[in-house]
């Protein structure tokens, strides 16, 4: 591990498989840790003690990361998303900021994060055409 981390910003009610799987893949590929910020749609940060769904989402992320050998921290708090992200970037060794498909789609949040992040911001959008995974394709 390099001690650096990927900061993944997502809405807490996004389909988890969508973005988390890529975030975990990328952290594993770069031998970096993962720091996850889950937020409400109104832009406020997520309180860890809120709701029954919270623990379920967290345990899902922890379990996936454990299987992949990726060190993970999930963030919660009462601050706004921008404040949380600014705070984390100033304190931790963040290599990349990765935005979930829905955050990417929300231009207002994307623009805010682009303004405050000194590190590259990686956006994700669902591929419009799924690549075929046919076997026995042409050989290059």
């Amino acid at each position: 591990m390099s001690g650096k981390e990927i900061l993944y910003v997502s809405y807490k009610d996004e389909p988890l498989e969508d973005g988390v799987s890529y975030a975990i893949y990328l952290a594993g590929a770069l031998h970096e840790g993962l720091r996850v910020v889950l937020m409400n749609r109104d832009g406020a940060g997520w309180m860890s003690s809120e709701g029954a769904g919270t623990a379920k989402v967290q345990s899902y992320i922890f379990e996936r990361c454990r299987k992949e050998g990726v060190k993970v921290t999930v963030h919660s708090g009462l601050l706004s998303t921008t404040s949380i992200v600014r705070n984390i970037i100033s304190r931790e060794k963040i290599d990349l900021v990765l935005l979930s498909p829905l955050v990417t789609h929300t231009r207002k949040v994307l623009n805010k994060l682009l303004k405050l992040s000194p590190r590259p911001v990686v956006t994700m959008a669902k591929a419009s055409i799924q690549n075929k995974t046919a076997e026995g394709g042409k050989v290059s």
């Binding site: 990328l26 992040s117 590259p120 911001v121 990686v122 994700m124 799924q130 690549n131």
Partner: peptide, 30 residues
């Protein structure tokens, strides 16, 4: 990773991470 997973003589799409096929990724430098 693909070398580990691939069983045939040529690396095919199945040996690549699924995420590569699912998303369009773009990196913006602030």
């Amino acid at each position: 990773r693909a070398v580990i997973l691939e069983k045939s003589s040529h690396i095919g799409p199945d040996s690549l991470p699924q995420s590569l096929k699912m998303f369009q990724i773009e990196t913006l430098r602030p």
